[in-house]
Computed example of a mutant assay.
Amino acid sequence: MTVSTRDEELLARVREMRERGSAPKQIAKALGLRPAQATALVRRVAEAALANVAPDERPVVGCWVNAGWSAGLDLAEAPGWAAADPLGQEPDPDAGGFAQILLARQERASRVTVTGFLVDVCCLGVKNVTDPEVMGSGSLTTYASMYYSAFDHRPLPIDVEQAQTIVHDAVAYARGLGFEPADGFADAVVHLGAPPGDRPVIGFGRDGKPFYFSGPYDNPRRVVQILERTCGPGNYDYVAHL
């Protein structure tokens, strides 16, 4: 698309006025534009600014995790996270084991990028990722409802720093046991970003030991063999159909 010299000058003026905090109506009046013209120029300025921002530095529109994600984990260093997940504090040995995280970041004025991570917090780390997908902002609520439709409780809103800590530290825990994250993790984690340096330590596993519960697409025999080699007999638990 060809941009005229006048358009470039207008965009520059709009950019300067937005940086000073001017609203679209003020910009329209100052530059002799119709309100719709000013709004369109403001949108173009915002989109151009976002295009030069790394995916993990774009504004967070929403971030969630399933209720009960913390069941069985040691969150002594993160009492606030534990208190925000009352379902995870219930004495149910069958609960927990997975943290399903959904993150939405601003893509441009009316678009967001969503990325999902299914995290086995007891053993395997990131088991699955939802490839980054761009959608209209108005579709986010419906998408999030579908993403968590398998759960009986509504997801919990969390800070992106908590999501970064869960995902990255679960991956590190799983790697220590001999397991790599799922295919596509490298592309998805670009949108998540690195965790803060000053963060609480999560005690992964269950009762202080790795706990493997086999899924429908796992190779349980291979997983148990790896745990036997990396942890040693009696230093892990599992429930699997071998």
Rank of each mutant, 00 (worst) to 15 (best):
T2H: 09
A76I: 03
N235H: 09
A30P: 07
T115L: 04
G96H: 01
D237E: 15
D7F: 10
D159A: 14
V45A: 12
D152T: 12
G234E: 06
G116K: 08
A172G: 08
V65S: 05
R154Y: 12
A172Y: 01
A182M: 01
L118T: 15
A40M: 01
V126I: 10
G197R: 08
L102T: 08
P55A: 00
D120N: 15
D152H: 00
A54R: 00
P86S: 03
T142A: 11
P155G: 05
L140S: 09
C231P: 11
D120Y: 14
P55F: 01
G72E: 01
P79N: 04
C122Y: 15
H153K: 10
T130V: 13
A40W: 02
A188H: 04
G178N: 03
S139G: 06
N235A: 14
V190M: 09
I27S: 07
F185C: 00
V239H: 11
A23E: 13
R175I: 01
S145Q: 12
Q164K: 06
F179W: 01
A67L: 03
P155L: 07
D198R: 14
F117K: 02
A99R: 04
R43N: 07
R175Y: 05
G125P: 11
L102E: 09
L50G: 04
V45Y: 03
E8W: 07
G184H: 07
V45C: 13
R15D: 00
S70N: 03
V60M: 00
V14Q: 01
A172M: 00
Y212Q: 08
K209T: 12
G232M: 07
F179H: 06
D207G: 09
H191C: 05
E77S: 01
K209A: 11
Y147A: 03
P91A: 01
Y143M: 08
E16N: 10
G32H: 14
R206C: 11
L118N: 12
Y143T: 13
R221P: 09
H153G: 07
A182T: 03
A30I: 05
D198W: 02
Y238L: 14
K209N: 06
G21C: 05
T39S: 01
P195E: 04
R15V: 00
D131N: 11
S110Y: 06
V112F: 10
A188D: 04
S22H: 05
A83M: 15
A23Q: 15
Y173M: 02
I166F: 04
P35L: 06
G197W: 00
G88Y: 00
G234P: 10
I202V: 09
H191R: 01
S214T: 10
A109T: 10
E161F: 10
S214D: 15
G138L: 06
P181D: 01
E8Y: 08
D198M: 12
R222V: 15
V65G: 03
R222S: 13
P86D: 10
C122L: 13
F117G: 00
D92H: 02
E77F: 02
Y236L: 11
R34T: 11
S139T: 08
Y147D: 04
I202A: 02
G32N: 12
P210W: 11
M1K: 03
T130W: 10
Q26M: 11
E9G: 06
D120T: 14
C122D: 13
N128L: 15
L124T: 14
E57L: 13
Y217F: 11
I226L: 02
G62I: 09
T2M: 02
L227G: 00
